[in-house]
Simulated scan of single mutants.
Amino acid sequence: MLLRIAALALGLAEAFRPRRLVDVWLNLATEGDATPRRWVYTAARIEGLLLVLWAVRRHRDSG
């Protein structure tokens, strides 16, 4: 259940604020100025939607 909640929260954050989340992870992963390509934000948004769908589906299956 905790994994579902974490996936839902992360998925919502990625779906609605992909730029902020990608920039945070990029700053943690790199030491210098790294600029992600434009498609990275779209990929993060898609990943967020998939996490939300997974969490919702798991909730329906367990209930």
Rank of each mutant, 00 (worst) to 15 (best):
Arg37His: 07
Leu49Tyr: 09
Leu49Ile: 05
Leu10Met: 14
Glu14Phe: 13
Glu14Arg: 10
Trp39Met: 08
Leu26Asp: 01
Leu21Pro: 08
Val40Met: 10
Val24Ser: 02
Leu21Trp: 09
Arg4Lys: 12
Ile5Cys: 15
Val24Arg: 05
Ala9Ser: 14
Thr35Lys: 06
Gly11Ile: 00
Trp25Asp: 01
Met1Ser: 15
Arg38Gly: 13
Arg37Asp: 13
Pro18Phe: 09
Val40Thr: 07
Trp54Arg: 04
Met1Gly: 15
Leu21Ser: 11
Trp39Leu: 10
Thr35Asp: 08
Leu10Val: 15
Ala43Arg: 01
Thr30Phe: 13
Ala43Gly: 05
Leu10Gln: 05
Arg38Pro: 10
Met1Lys: 00
Arg19Pro: 05
Leu8Asp: 05
Val22Asp: 07
Leu8Val: 10
Ala29Ile: 02
Pro36Gly: 04
Arg38Cys: 05
Arg38Phe: 11
Gly11Trp: 08
Ala44Leu: 05
Gly48Ser: 03
Leu10Glu: 00
Leu2Val: 14
Gly48Trp: 00
Ser62Asn: 02
Asp33Lys: 01
Ala29Glu: 10
Arg45Val: 05
Leu21His: 07
Ala7Val: 03
Trp25His: 04
Leu21Ile: 12
Leu12Thr: 13
Ala9Gln: 04
Ala44Cys: 10
Arg58Leu: 08
Arg17Ala: 15
Leu2Trp: 13
Tyr41Phe: 15
Leu3Ile: 14
Asp61Cys: 06
Ala55Ser: 14
Glu31Gln: 03
Arg17Asn: 13
Leu26Ile: 01
Thr35Ala: 09
Ala43Phe: 11
Arg4Trp: 07
Leu21Gln: 04
Val40Cys: 04
Ile46Asn: 02
Trp39His: 05
Glu14Asn: 13
Gly11Gln: 03
Gly48Thr: 00
Arg4Gln: 14
Leu10His: 01
Asp23Ile: 04
Arg37Glu: 11
Arg37Tyr: 03
Arg57Asp: 12
Ala15Ser: 12
Trp54Ser: 11
Leu53Thr: 11
Ile46Glu: 02
Ala34Asn: 04
Gly48Leu: 03
Gly63Phe: 03
Ala44Asn: 08
Pro18Val: 13
Asn27His: 08
Pro18Thr: 09
Asp23Asn: 13
Val22Trp: 02
Leu12Gln: 05
Leu53Ile: 10
Leu2His: 12
Arg45Tyr: 01
Pro36Gln: 02
Asn27Arg: 07
Ala34Pro: 03
Arg57Thr: 14
Asp33Leu: 07
Arg20Val: 11
Gly32Ala: 06
Ala9Trp: 00
Arg45Lys: 11
Asp23Lys: 04
Val24Gly: 06
Ala9Thr: 10
Val56Cys: 13
Arg38Leu: 10
Arg37Lys: 07
Gly48Pro: 06
Glu14Asp: 06
Ala6Gly: 12
Arg60Gln: 11
Tyr41Thr: 01
Trp39Val: 08
Ala7Met: 13
Ala34Lys: 02
Gly32Ile: 08
Leu51Met: 10
Leu49Gln: 09
Asp23Trp: 04
Arg38His: 07
Arg57Ser: 15
Arg58Trp: 13
Thr42Asn: 06
Ser62Arg: 03
Leu3Val: 10
Ala15Tyr: 02
Leu2Phe: 15
Pro18Arg: 03
Met1Thr: 07
Asp61Asn: 02
Ala9His: 01
Val22Met: 12
Trp25Ser: 07
Leu10Gly: 11
Ala15Leu: 15
Trp25Thr: 04
